[in-house]
């Protein structure tokens, strides 16, 4: 049980995919123009991540090491397509918000990375705990980036106006350079916070 909790929290902070491992940068930089986009993309990714990790963990003794990567790709791509089809057919309201992002999940390397580095080596329970932690860690990270960019670029937060009409909006924050600027500054702050927690800085 302790192990499961540890696996879960690992992705939220210690090995946060966005701020610590710096993986999955394509969706992180591309869709974070608003806080809501971050939540939507994050949850859709979490969903796919949990199920693909579970499947790969269950099949870990069946997949030969030499062809593991093509096998993971088939599993992940199939799963994403199934989610895409069923969401379009049965949950049209949700599909309207998430539909744009679901095909992007296939190219999110967090899913591949967790399959390769974790799910293929551990029991299904641990794989799920890790996938949930990683997924939610990704979600809060890109929601934070989205919130910063939305606040500075459109003057709103989750669609609600925060600044008055007269405050100049920094349109650059909504454009690709804004993604890199926000990411860089947040990454710096994250590193500062983590360094303070380490007693012996000589170790690094």
């Amino acid at each position: 049980m302790y192990q499961l909790v540890k696996d879960f929290f690992n992705g939220l902070w210690n090995e946060n995919p966005t701020f610590k491992m710096i993986i999955g940068m394509c969706p992180t930089l591309a869709v974070t123009t608003a806080a809501m986009n971050g939540i939507a993309m994050g949850l859709a990714t979490t969903f796919v991540l949990v199920f693909s990790s579970l499947l790969i963990s269950l099949l870990r003794n069946f997949i030969p090491a030499k062809v593991r990567i093509p096998c993971y790709i088939i599993v992940i791509a199939t799963f994403v397509t199934v989610v895409d089809l069923f969401m379009a057919g049965y949950f049209p309201a949700m599909y309207k918000i998430l539909g744009l992002y679901i095909p992007l999940i296939v190219v999110n390397c967090i899913i591949m990375a967790r399959a390769e580095a974790f799910a293929s080596k551990v029991t299904p329970m641990r794989a799920i705990a890790d996938a949930l932690g990683m997924g939610l860690g990704f979600t809060w990270a890109i929601t934070l980036i989205g919130a910063v960019r939305e606040l500075m670029g459109s003057g709103t937060l989750f669609g609600f106006p925060v600044f008055g009409e007269n405050v100049t909006r920094w349109v650059i924050m909504l454009l690709p350079p804004g993604a890199f600027i926000t990411m860089g500054v947040l990454l710096g702050i994250m590193n500062l916070l983590t360094r303070r927690g380490v007693k012996n800085t000589q170790c690094h």
């Binding site: 997949i63 030969p64 062809v67 096998c71 599993v75 397509t81 199934v82 089809l85 379009a88 057919g89």
Partner: peptide, 24 residues
Amino acid sequence: VLLIFSVLSGAVLAFSYELANPKI
């Protein structure tokens, strides 16, 4: 193994498409 994965994935996709397409 690769063959099994591809065939199963194809079957799952075809089945999901048949099921979801009328709704879509």
